[in-house]
Design a protein around this nucleic acid. Sequence first.
DNA 1: CTGTTAGCGCTTTCAG
DNA 2: CTGAAAGCGCTAACAG
Lengths: 343, 343
Amino acid sequence: MKKLTLKSVAEELGVSTATISNAFNKPNQLSKAKRLEILQRCEELGYTGPNKAARSLRRGKTGIVGLVLANSISYTVNDAVASTFISGVSQCLEANGQQLLLVSGAGDDLNNVNDFVDGYLCYGSPTNTNLIDALSKTTKPVITVDFNIGDYPSVNIDNIEACYQLVKQTIREDDVVAVIGLRLIETQLTCRIYDVPMIDPVTSISRRRLLGYEKALSESGIDFNYEQLWSIPENIESFAVRAAKEVLSNQPCPTIVYCMSDLIAVYFIREAMEMGLSVPGDIRVVGFDGTNEGQRFHPNLTTVVQNSDIKGERAAVMLLEQSKESQLLPFTLHFGDSCPRNA
Amino acid sequence: MKKLTLKSVAEELGVSTATISNAFNKPNQLSKAKRLEILQRCEELGYTGPNKAARSLRRGKTGIVGLVLANSISYTVNDAVASTFISGVSQCLEANGQQLLLVSGAGDDLNNVNDFVDGYLCYGSPTNTNLIDALSKTTKPVITVDFNIGDYPSVNIDNIEACYQLVKQTIREDDVVAVIGLRLIETQLTCRIYDVPMIDPVTSISRRRLLGYEKALSESGIDFNYEQLWSIPENIESFAVRAAKEVLSNQPCPTIVYCMSDLIAVYFIREAMEMGLSVPGDIRVVGFDGTNEGQRFHPNLTTVVQNSDIKGERAAVMLLEQSKESQLLPFTLHFGDSCPRNA
DNA sequence: CTGTTAGCGCTTTCAG
DNA sequence: CTGAAAGCGCTAACAG
């Protein structure tokens, strides 16, 4: 069987290539009868339409959106919050016939993807900062989420305000506070943060969350210093458990712990319970994200619900509509059994 | 600034286009000195190398792998097992400089992706059966996972054997059994399965699991019939909870429940506990998959650990190596607190 | 409404 | 080792 191309099919049917092209792409450029006949015969031949790769070379559009992640793909898809975000993105893209290409945030550059995508969504600051550079230089449209690059439009929630309110509504006068942060500094270690400089709040969502906690704590007259602050590099079991153990073995033991993710909170509670502590009786635990698992968990988590799916959908819509306006999305606080709300 | 193409850059540097192309693609076609000089000057100009889309048109390779999912992308990325699979796939692809394009299993055809990918991984039978058709017709290589299409090589675990062993090692003589299946029939309902025909075992992983349960139950002299069999259409909370409630309100109440996913098991336990039943005291619960959450959960689950990440990696390797040999991967049984192992 | 032609940006002969 | 030229498969512009 001969290779099926626009040209070969045109020959076969005895019409010009443009006519076939129009039959598929511009219905009103030829008679309905002729068009249907052509489509009919193409189907018989097994020709499913113009080659999309060739078309994209000519048109300059591929119908593919690149989603640049903060971390590797393998890490990201296992993160509940990121998955929910991807979910929202894909819903919008599927509805608009666009394809989704996942791009690792650990890669060196965008060379292998840049010519295949119409634009980028960038979810969180890529661990390989070369990518930030590459994204600032690309001629394709870019929407950032949870952080900013230059003047590209972005989607965010107000992390400072969320954390501020969270503390305000949960803190008690005599609390001993601990905070477990996520990627507050550039390291692969689970540790407290003493003298090293933290990542800039513009880039770091965690840093903004910390600012929110601190503001509320200081307003509430609580003494909080960096002896009570831990940071883990990735939102996974091993790091979370290690941090939990450190926090729980610290003297004086905290009475309330603010975790920068629900997953951290879940592991913290598990560790606390294994030590015979009761939650919220002995120690109250607060999460962040509003994941499904946090609500399935027992006790279910007090947390910030940030609707990552809507975030994803918004970002995708912005990209497709070429919107230039950044968006600040609402969040809600959920008070579960892991930490009651103040009266 | 002029548009940067191979041609324009060649003009600028006063050499032929082939030379630039060779500098990037075929180092030994020109002197090292010249090559370095060219690359150097290209970098100054901001030319990052030949356009990949154009190259792919010429070469017939894009460096993109299409991962066709069983369901929509938005559903799939939120499923722990599928995410782990994707994780394994992406690890292999990242290591080999290949890109990952996610393809919904709910789409009508592959027309919008086929010309952009070098081959397909297909994870589970797509809900839109048109895709099975499209996959059987494509000229690109295809690897299927957890099911089969024609003679394409596939990756599987032995679901029948896994479930057989699981039952053998957990069942007791006087047990009343219930099974909660996942997509045993083509419907959007949570229901028992009476007269309707179930999906073919070749296509349906769940069907094979059921065969394994049944074999062991009958060997153990347990009376099991389809009054004790439920099926839910998707692995999500709403369906799982509904099935759990139905099972728990059934008379006689089962003493052991085999769930075809860990997620179903987790929700089942939650419902059971809310009704004041103890697990495993009043009712034993068995999952399937070996998800992290199942192990974080309290009581942690007795389940089949199927190492989805390795599955993904294997499948990706097979695609890249153009292997024609199907693989059957090992599984392990994990006995947690939700259902003890027989003595 | 239909056909011809140039060219999207590149790689690959093949001749020098 | 270098350069000229063909062509991957398509679409847009324009002529008829």
